[in-house]
Nucleic acid binder design. Structure first.
Lengths: 149, 149
DNA sequence: GAATATGGTCAACCTGGTTGTCCAGTGAGA
DNA sequence: TCTCACTGGACAACCAGGTTGACCATATTC
């Protein structure tokens, strides 16, 4: 049998491909995983571009490019920081929140199909198992989310 | 809880980071995951650069660059194809096979540590579950191994 | 034997990141 | 309160790992 990380990345890729295919069918901008992670992050907390870069595991300059794209496409906007005149909060627009809602539904559909294929208990075991492993390795600080190739 | 693909990619990254750290400690060339996949592929079957590109999910030109690196570093060599004068088989050198052996040991160490952390039955469930899922999605043709970001 | 397809290579280019630099604003300590 | 180290954001140059396109020599198909 394949080594574990190989299985992980192949399954990630398989799910991601299906997700992307269905997104494309409804004709959205060419959003990449990184964009999705930004949405998810912004929903959870107020954040600046620097925060986003840290979360994605890239430099603030790279994060700025991504934020610019999302801005052009109307998914986020920047508003002044209430106390720090240098900083700007990046916030989701309605379009951004709608996307996120749609994506969440899609993910849970795909997870449902996975459960149909291999059984819900197995899916649950995978989720709790990997969560526990990440907790074991990273403790409470955030694990890397950017795959390396 | 995080969506499944997020867990998959975080766990992939976590294991990969540990693998890479330990590799670096013993001072090997900057081998990336793609190189490892090539070794694994070459062990399984005789292959040309074109075959490798197909396996990795990249163009033959990109595959050629990778093969060139591995050649310079002494992990592979090219030998003439017995019947097709255009083609060359890429084959592992002793150094390549040694690396692969070392890497396999390291992976199984890491998998053992994972089992210590979350229990061997859980690890087994993850492996068989993901394998079954991939079988479900891809049937018998090879799933993509290159993560998208 | 001619037309088409394929392995390998060279070259130009694209994209998503990096490093380096700078400025304006922040905030802690003397 | 002044000074000085630090930080958010932007601009520019560069890099790495891919892509597309073209080409040649050999294979294959008819």
């Amino acid at each position: 049998m394949e080594p574990v990380p190989m299985l992980l990345v192949m399954a990630y890729r398989a799910m991601g491909d299906q997700f992307h295919d269905r997104l494309r069918q409804i004709g959205l901008e060419p959003l990449r995983p990184a964009h999705g992670y930004v949405f998810r992050f912004l929903k959870a907390k107020r954040a600046t571009t620097v925060d986003i870069g840290q979360h994605l595991g890239v430099t603030k300059q790279a994060a700025a490019k991504i934020v610019n794209e999302l801005d052009e496409w109307g998914y986020v906007l920047r508003e002044p920081h209430p106390t720090d005149k240098r900083a700007q909060y990046v916030t989701l627009t309605t379009k951004g929140r709608d996307y996120l809602k749609f994506a969440d539904n899609l993910w849970s559909d795909l997870e449902g199909e996975m459960a149909d294929a291999i059984g819900k208990p197995t899916v649950d075991a995978i989720k709790t198992g990997l969560t526990a492993y990440l907790q074991h390795v990273h403790g409470d600080d955030q694990p890397g989310i950017r795959p390396v190739w």
